[in-house]
Every structure is written in structure tokens, then in C-alpha cells.
Computed example of a mutant assay.
Amino acid sequence: MNALVSTLGAGWILAVLLLSARIAALLLMTPLLYAAALPLLVRVLMALGFACVIALPFAGTPAPAPHDFGVLLQALLHELAIGATLGLGVLMAFAGFALAGRLVDVQVGFGIAQVFDPATRTRVPVLSSVFGLFAAVFFFLVNGHHALLRGIAYSVERFPVGQPAPLAAAAEPIAREAAALFALGFALAAPIVLGLLLVDFALGVISRNLPQMNMLVLGVPVKIVAGLLALWAWAATFGAPAGRLYAAIYRTWTAWLATGAR
């Protein structure tokens, strides 16, 4: 163990430890790893592996050695705060998909039926769970995980490990992403929601002209069929609004990381 420490250097090992805390906090705030049933040990080893690989180019400038345990704990908490702030940007983008799923569930009538969602470990309506899993799959299909790793490396470049970072400067970019979250989430589900509103309007006209018909019995299957057909037609145009949701992650990161030391 002493030979390993002397070979790699205590500073580099400390940099890996602090960087793994940043990456672990980021992964904990995102639903990417929760979408698959990965054991806790595997997630911890992934965070340590990412930290080791990313810390290799920075081996020449290791983290400053702390003077005591209190300083080390403070640096560790600071790295956790940086990772959680980065993860919050990712989490809000996925929340846009959750918002779109809830809107569709309410319109179709699936809001009552709930299933277990492995991405969030909670019980959610049927289509909300589908939207969440589809968002995770689409994130990997567009190579979002590559951009995620590049963003982590860029955060190390802008905010060196063990150095203070302007956490308060992240408030404005995150607030802007949160404000755009509702607009982008509604834009994602807008074709389906507007289509089902037209179905509601048509059912209202029928109910007005044919009061002897039971609209509760007739309306539920009609809205389910119309909603599923709208989902099928909407799938072809899913990419553009989903891409804008993912682009919001990197706009938020870039606006915050640009405040780092040059």
C-alpha cells in the first residue's frame, strides 16, 4: 500500500477521491443509472472508475494536501455540492419528460392507474413511466452520455479539484432552465394534448345532441384509443423537442462553468 501511494502520489489519490465524490453526486442526482437494476457496489465502482480515468490528465497538478481532517471534509462536501449542482441540470431536463407524461396521462385517463417506475423508484402513472424510460434510452441514443463525460472533464478544468467554486453563480442558469422546463415539457406533449382536447370537444358536442348516450362509458375507450393513436403519430416528431430539453442541460452547465477561473 505504501509503495502504491509513493508511486501514484498522495496528491493524485486525493484528487481521485474528491473527483469521485463529485461524479457520485452527479450520478445520484440523475435517473440514468436508476433506469437499470445496477447494484450499489457497481455504481460506486463506476464512479471511482470514471474518477480515475478523468483524473489521469490532471496527475501533474494534484489536489492540494489538506492540513487536517476538517479541511479534507470541507473539500469533500464542496465537491459533493459541485456534483449535485451539475446533476440538478440533468434532473430538471428529465423532469420535462415527466411533466409531458403527466399531461398525457391526465388527458388520456391513465392518471389513476399507477405502476412502479424503476427510474425514480416511485409509483407513477403508466405513460409517465414510459416517458421516463424512453427519455433515458433516447439520452444514450443521441450520445448524451459522451457529452456528460465531457462536461465532467470540463468542470474539472474550470473548477479544479479541491479549489473553491462559485456555487452561487449557478443560481441564475438553473433558474432559467427551470423556467423553460414547463414550456419545453408542454411542447413535448402539445400535439397529443391538443388532439385529445379536440376529442373532448367532439364528445361534448355528441353529448349535447344525444343526451341519451352515456358519455362516461363511451368517452373513456374513445380517449384511450385516440391517445394511443396520437402517441403513435407523435413518435415521429419526438426528436426535436427532446433535443431541446437535452440542450438545456449543456446551456446551463456552460453558463455556470464559464464563471470558473481561467
Rank of each mutant, 00 (worst) to 15 (best):
residue 44 V to I: 14
residue 222 V to S: 09
residue 27 L to D: 02
residue 116 F to W: 15
residue 143 N to H: 14
residue 173 P to V: 06
residue 41 L to P: 00
residue 246 Y to P: 09
residue 146 H to K: 14
residue 190 A to V: 05
residue 94 F to I: 11
residue 89 G to H: 06
residue 54 I to M: 09
residue 217 V to H: 08
residue 146 H to G: 12
residue 154 Y to I: 08
residue 26 L to Q: 09
residue 185 G to K: 07
residue 191 P to T: 01
residue 82 I to E: 02
residue 224 I to L: 06
residue 98 A to W: 01
residue 140 F to W: 13
residue 63 A to Y: 03
residue 250 Y to W: 13
residue 178 A to V: 15
residue 238 F to C: 01
residue 31 P to C: 11
residue 222 V to L: 12
residue 10 A to K: 12
residue 70 G to D: 02
residue 3 A to I: 11
residue 223 K to M: 05
residue 175 A to W: 08
residue 114 Q to F: 02
residue 136 A to G: 07
residue 49 G to A: 14
residue 28 L to R: 15
residue 80 L to Y: 01
residue 56 L to C: 08
residue 196 L to F: 00
residue 74 Q to V: 08
residue 152 I to T: 03
residue 44 V to R: 10
residue 150 R to A: 14
residue 68 D to N: 11
residue 93 A to M: 09
residue 80 L to Q: 03
residue 63 A to F: 01
residue 181 L to H: 07
residue 189 A to I: 07
residue 204 G to E: 07
residue 112 I to R: 15
residue 260 G to F: 01
residue 84 A to D: 07
residue 70 G to L: 03
residue 50 F to G: 07
residue 169 A to I: 04
residue 139 F to K: 12
residue 169 A to Q: 05
residue 65 A to N: 09
residue 134 F to I: 02
residue 87 G to C: 10
residue 113 A to V: 15
residue 134 F to C: 08
residue 124 V to A: 12
residue 9 G to C: 10
residue 143 N to G: 12
residue 110 F to M: 13
residue 83 G to Q: 09
residue 116 F to K: 14
residue 257 L to I: 00
residue 215 M to A: 10
residue 173 P to I: 02
residue 218 L to E: 03
residue 73 L to D: 03
residue 192 I to E: 01
residue 156 V to Q: 05
residue 188 L to H: 00
residue 31 P to Y: 06
residue 245 L to Q: 05
residue 231 L to T: 04
residue 101 G to A: 04
residue 142 V to A: 11
residue 63 A to S: 15
residue 239 G to M: 12
residue 215 M to Q: 09
residue 118 P to Y: 00
residue 138 F to R: 13
residue 22 R to Y: 02
residue 97 F to V: 11
residue 160 P to L: 14
residue 91 L to S: 14
residue 199 V to S: 10
residue 254 T to N: 12
residue 198 L to F: 08
residue 176 R to Q: 15
residue 175 A to I: 02
residue 190 A to M: 09
residue 230 A to N: 08
residue 16 V to Y: 04
residue 3 A to T: 12
residue 152 I to W: 11
residue 121 R to W: 10
residue 75 A to C: 07
residue 256 W to M: 02
residue 235 A to P: 00
residue 76 L to I: 04
residue 94 F to H: 08
residue 218 L to I: 15
residue 25 A to V: 06
residue 149 L to T: 09
residue 16 V to I: 14
residue 153 A to Q: 13
residue 93 A to K: 07
residue 256 W to V: 01
residue 135 A to H: 04
residue 62 P to E: 11
residue 11 G to E: 02
residue 185 G to E: 05
residue 243 G to P: 10
residue 222 V to P: 01
residue 186 F to Y: 06
residue 75 A to R: 06
residue 23 I to Q: 00
residue 262 R to H: 14
residue 244 R to P: 08
residue 187 A to W: 05
residue 147 A to V: 08
residue 217 V to G: 09
residue 27 L to N: 04
residue 226 A to C: 10
residue 256 W to L: 02
residue 159 F to M: 13
residue 241 P to A: 08
residue 83 G to L: 11
residue 160 P to I: 03
residue 91 L to K: 13
residue 109 G to Y: 03
residue 165 A to T: 00
residue 67 H to G: 15
residue 21 A to Y: 04
residue 222 V to G: 05
residue 154 Y to P: 05
residue 161 V to L: 04
residue 17 L to Q: 14
residue 16 V to P: 07
residue 190 A to C: 07
residue 149 L to I: 15
residue 262 R to G: 13
residue 260 G to P: 00
residue 11 G to N: 03
residue 216 L to S: 12
